[in-house]
C-alpha cells in the first residue's frame, strides 16, 4: 500500500504552552453560551413534520367514511419485515358498501416489526394505507403494539380522496345497463 508521509509543522513556543489554543477554545465556548439553545424540549415542543414524512402506517377512510382497504394483501406481500397480517373478509350483501365486496376482517400491523419503509403505502392500489406523522408509539407489552384494525383506523382518520373509484362504480350501477 502506498504511504504518504504528511509533513507536520513544528509547534511554535506559544503553541507548545497550549495556552493560546486553550484561550481560543474558551472564546468559542463562551460565545456558544450566549447563543439560543438548538435543542427541542421534546414532549412539550414538537418538531415540524415535513411533507412526505414516513411515520406510523395507518389505515384511512374516505370522506364518506368508507373504509378504503379492500384487503388485497399487497402490503402484506410487499412488507419487508412481514409486519402486516390481514385476514380478508367479504362485505355483507346488505351493507351500504356491498358493491366493494371485500374488506379486511382483521388487519394487524406489528409496530415492533415495522421499519417505516413506506412500501405498503406505495403499493396500495386503493390508497388506503398511509404513513402519517405519528412517530412515537409506546406500550407495555408486545401484544399491545400489534395494532388492530380499529386502532389503525383511529390513528389514520380520514384523508381526502382523489378518485372516489368505488362511488363512481356505484353510480354506474345505479345508472344501470341501458340494455336491460
Amino acid at each position: 500500500m502506498a504511504t504518504k508521509v504528511l509533513e507536520r509543522k513544528p509547534l511554535s513556543l506559544a503553541e507548545q504552552t497550549y495556552l493560546p489554543q486553550i484561550l481560543g477554545g474558551m472564546k468559542i465556548t463562551l460565545r456558544n453560551m450566549f447563543k439560543p439553545p438548538v435543542t427541542l424540549e421534546y414532549p412539550d415542543e414538537r418538531p415540524d413534520i415535513p411533507e412526505g414524512y414516513r411515520g406510523v402506517p395507518t389505515l384511512v377512510k374516505d370522506p364518506n367514511g368508507r373504509e378504503k382497504c379492500v384487503s388485497c394483501q399487497l402490503c402484506e406481500f410487499v412488507c419487508p419485515p412481514r409486519a402486516i397480517r390481514i385476514t380478508p373478509g367479504e362485505i355483507d350483501a346488505e351493507s351500504d358498501t356491498a358493491h366493494v365486496e371485500k374488506a379486511p376482517k382483521e388487519f394487524e400491523i406489528n409496530m415492533l416489526r415495522c421499519i417505516y419503509c413506506g412500501f405498503c403505502q406505495e403499493v396500495c392500489p386503493e390508497e388506503a394505507i398511509f404513513l402519517q406523522d405519528i412517530f412515537s408509539l409506546s406500550g407495555y407489552s408486545r401484544e399491545e403494539l400489534v395494532y388492530q384494525k380499529d386502532k389503525l383506523y383511529e390513528l389514520g382518520g380520514t384523508l381526502p380522496d382523489q378518485h372516489y373509484k368505488w362511488d363512481r362504480k356505484r353510480e354506474a350501477e345505479l345508472a344501470g345497463n341501458p340494455h336491460h
Partner: peptide, 13 residues
C-alpha cells in the same frame, strides 16, 4: 447548566 449552554442545550429545567 454551563455544559448545556456551551453545547446549545437547555439543561435541567
Amino acid at each position: 447548566k454551563v455544559a448545556a449552554w456551551v453545547q446549545g442545550r437547555v439543561g435541567p429545567n
